[in-house]
């Protein structure tokens, strides 16, 4: 009887601890979100999106340049990263699925997902900033693309593997060549999944700071010319939050709020999409 009580107590304690752990996890999430909302909300004004920064000590100003710069850099990353990622994933799930090389690359891309992003920044600095001779927005886009590629490859491969083989075989039987089968049957079947993977990869790179520090750098003016150093929201947050001025801190919170809401929105959208598509 004594051991039974002991076991029951042990059971209660261990289970309570795990409930506590879950509560801690949720607590942090709400604490951080609440803080970002609390500090950022009052600085969300039309000026934030329509005006450029002013020097410390001047009144007003906003972060229009950083919003536009961030979008341009992300756009470049998408234009480079999505096709390479989708095609690469296609190879891994179709042509290369049984080859040693294919499996090797698949493993490598899993590892590459977690290569420290700051290391990618130093790499792009060495190949694109130093030789060109100045910081530029393109380099920032390329750095983000490099982070994006393995993420897109992984989800594309997974989603295409989920398309049943019988579908492909049916198409082969009609005499379609493999690339037609892939583009018209497999892609169609896996479209939602691939699209979600792309969404999540955008969410991932939109919040990256470290790879932009030495590539696209920063700019206090509005620019759409990516040959110049290009401002981004994340680097601006870094600069403003590290700085001493109170209005900088306010704007950093506001920018943090915008970027967090955008990323959470994309993440939730992606999750809902997957759920809706793969209900079974």
């Amino acid at each position: 009887m004594n051991t039974l009580t002991k076991r029951k107590i042990q059971n209660k304690v261990a289970l309570s601890l795990s409930v506590l752990a879950a509560a801690i996890g949720l607590f942090w999430l709400f604490f951080i979100l609440w803080d970002v909302f609390r500090h950022g909300l009052s600085f969300i004004t039309p000026d934030l999106f329509t005006k450029d920064p002013v020097p410390p000590g001047f009144e007003g100003g906003g972060l229009r340049n950083a919003f536009v710069g961030q979008m341009l850099i992300t756009l470049v990353a998408m234009v480079i990263g999505i096709p390479i990622g989708v095609l690469g994933g296609t190879f891994l799930s179709e042509y290369g699925r049984h080859s040693k090389l294919g499996r090797f690359i698949s493993t490598l891309s899993d590892i590459m997902v977690s290569v420290p992003s700051i290391v990618i920044g130093t790499f792009v600095y060495a190949i694109m900033v130093k030789p060109i001779g100045h910081f530029n927005g393109w380099a920032g886009g390329v750095a983000l693309a490099i982070i994006m590629i393995p993420v897109v490859i992984r989800t594309t491969e997974d989603m295409m593997s989920l398309v049943p083989w019988s579908l492909r075989e049916a198409a082969f039987a009609l005499g379609a060549p493999y690339y037609k089968v892939i583009t018209q049957v497999v892609y169609r079947g896996a479209a939602t999944g691939i699209f979600t993977g792309i969404l999540l990869s955008i969410a991932r790179v939109a919040g990256e700071t470290a790879p932009l520090l030495f590539t696209s750098f920063n700019n206090s003016f509005f620019t759409t010319n990516l040959n110049d150093s290009t401002p981004s929201l994340t680097v601006t947050i870094f600069q403003y939050a590290m700085g001493p001025y109170d209005d900088w801190h306010g704007m950093a919170w506001a920018a943090a709020l915008v970027i967090t809401v955008a990323i959470l929105f994309i993440t939730i959208a992606g999750r809902l999409l997957i759920k809706w598509r793969y209900r079974s």
Partner: peptide, 11 residues
Amino acid sequence: LAAIPSIIYGM
């Protein structure tokens, strides 16, 4: 929680 950018955590 995993999707929140690291710069937000830092700040």
